[in-house]
Amino acid sequence: MNTTPSIPHPARQIGRILRRFGTLIGFFAIVLFFWSQRPDTFMTVRNWLNITQQISILGVVAFTMTVVMVMGDYDLSVGAMASLGGIAAALLFQQEMPVLTGIAVALLIGVAGGLLNGVLVSLVGITPFVATLGMLTVFSGVAFFISEGETIFGRAIPEQFSDFARGGIPLGTIGEQAVLLPNLTIVALLVLLAVWVLLEQTTFGRRLYAIGGNKEAARLGGVRLRLLRLIAFAVTGVGAAVAGLMLVSRLASANPTQGDGLMLDAIAAVFLGMTMSEEGEPHVLGTLVGVLILGVLRNGLTQLAIDSYVQQILTGAIIILAVTLSRLIRRAS
């Protein structure tokens, strides 16, 4: 019956490799390109540690975004949530509250905002696109309202907090200077590990993938759809708040829009990662490759002194190219 024409073995093997690792190969191609263009500055330990720090904040948002995207949902409010979480913590710092209080409140706001998204999506039944788009506006409005539109910076941000982003674990020395594994990179790695364990090693993650594959079959198969969706949105909310805190620490300032740009990049990273999965499912390691591609492009193009607007155009074009290629390869095989 369903006899598909059998392709000779090696060709099929190559097709399979291209399907799974094409995006990774693309990433290495980009790296090689920048290496050849800037042999002295690009392929250095210092630059790579720098890249990991640059992408750490996007990484945290994208890794946790993967959790809802595994279910076939989206969260468009993560950028606004990052802004809101950051500004809320900064306002508390301004009131000379302890650093830990500020962090705790920001994380709580992340959980609450995520749960609110979850309630709208899973209990009320609004599509994630509309629900989280609405909440994006709400979070953004709240961020402006509580900060009165002001940027909080300077002495308002405790040194203890902003030093965190500058610090790191010493790895050794190159020449005169100490080389640090940045704290922000460590945070991103911890979040990556946590999300990987959650999605790939727990029953929770297994059920999320089932929901993403077939909601009705998952429900009839005993998956508590509503509860799980709720929790997944909360995870994404916390991730956004963590990213917001990282931003405040890195910039030593907070304003009500500073996290807004994270949302589109995070979704783009997850999509890039999805091109690496045979069934088109999001996987957090795929997302990592997506984040690396975006980070390396930004770093490399900046080193080539390409205008930042042109960088945007190139980045967008490369994302579309990657997804198109993966689709074409899939169709061909």
Binding site: R206, Y209, A210, G212, G213, N214, E216, A217, A218, L220, G221, E279, G280, E281
Partner: peptide, 12 residues
Amino acid sequence: SQGLVLSRSIED
């Protein structure tokens, strides 16, 4: 439509 998650493995 109701029984299987087609994108997942037999064991899943």
